[in-house]
Amino acid sequence: MRQTLDLLVEYFSYPFIRYAFIVGVLIALSSSLLGVILVLKRFSFIGDGLSHVAFGAMAVASVAGLTNNMLLVLPVTVIAAILLLRTGQNTRIKGDAAVAMISVGALAIGYLIMNMFSMSANVSGDVCSTLFGETAILTLSKLDVWLCIGMSVIVILFFILFYNKIFAVTFDENFASTTGMGVKGFNLAVAVITAFIIVLAMNLVGSLLISALVIFPALSSMRVFRTFKSVIISSALLSVICASLGIMISVLASTPVGATVVAVNIAAFGVFFAVGALVRRK
C-alpha cells in the first residue's frame, strides 16, 4: 500500500500526468452532467454518433495536414449535433435511425480517408489511438488543459443557471414550450455544449468510448435515486470518482486510460444496480 502511494506521488510529479488527471476528471464531470439530459431525453446515442462524426472530421483534418485539428473538428461536430438534435422530433426519419446513419457513415468515410491518403507509416496505430484515445491524453498541452477547464466551467454554470429549465424541458418539452420558455434556444445550447464535450472527450477516451462516459454515470444513478436533483448530483460525483480511480489505476498498471475509466464505470454500474435492486425489494 505504502509503495503504491509512493509510486503514485512520483508519477503525479510529472506535469503530463497531472494534466491528464485534471482534464480527465473535468471531462468526466461535464459529460456526466450532460449525460443525464441525453439519457432522459432518449438521446443516449447522440454521444456515440457525434464522436464518430468527430472521428471522420479528425481523419480529414489530419490528412489535409491542418496544424490545428480543432479548427475543422469542432465546427463539423457542432453542426452535426444541431442537425441530430433537431431530428429528435417531428421529422420523418426517426431520431435514432438518423444518428445511426450519420454515425457509421462518418466512421467508414473517416477510416477510408485515413487509409487512402495518410502519409503516416502506422495507419492502424493512428486509427486505433483516435478510436480509443491511447496517447492523446498523455500529450496534452497547457492550452488543452485551459480549454478543458473553460469548457467545464461553462457546463457547470449552464447547469446552475438553467437548472429549473433543464428539468422542465427534459421532463416534458411540449409543456415547457407552452409556458412560453424558449425551448428551441435551449435545445440548441444543449447541442452545442454536447459537441464541445465530445470533441474534448476524444482526448481522454477516444471516440469509441465517449458514450460510455456520457451514459454510465446517469444510468447507474437512476438505478438508485428517484428524484432529478439526486440523480444529477450522484452522476457528477460518481463520474468524478470513477475517472479519478480509473486514471490512477491506469497509471499504476500501465493500462489504456480510456478503457480503464470505462471499466471502472461498468463496475460502478454493477454496484448501483445491486444496491437499487436491494432498496427496491424492501
Partner: peptide
C-alpha cells in the same frame, strides 16, 4: 396544459414536488 400521458415520463426520476414546481417555469 395537461398532456396525454406518454411512456417517456413514466420512468423519469423526479419527485412530485419537482414536477409541480416546474409549472412555474414561465
Amino acid at each position: 396544459y395537461l398532456p396525454q400521458q406518454t411512456e417517456h415520463q413514466r420512468d423519469f426520476p423526479a419527485s412530485v414536488e419537482e414536477v409541480v414546481l416546474s409549472g412555474c417555469i414561465g
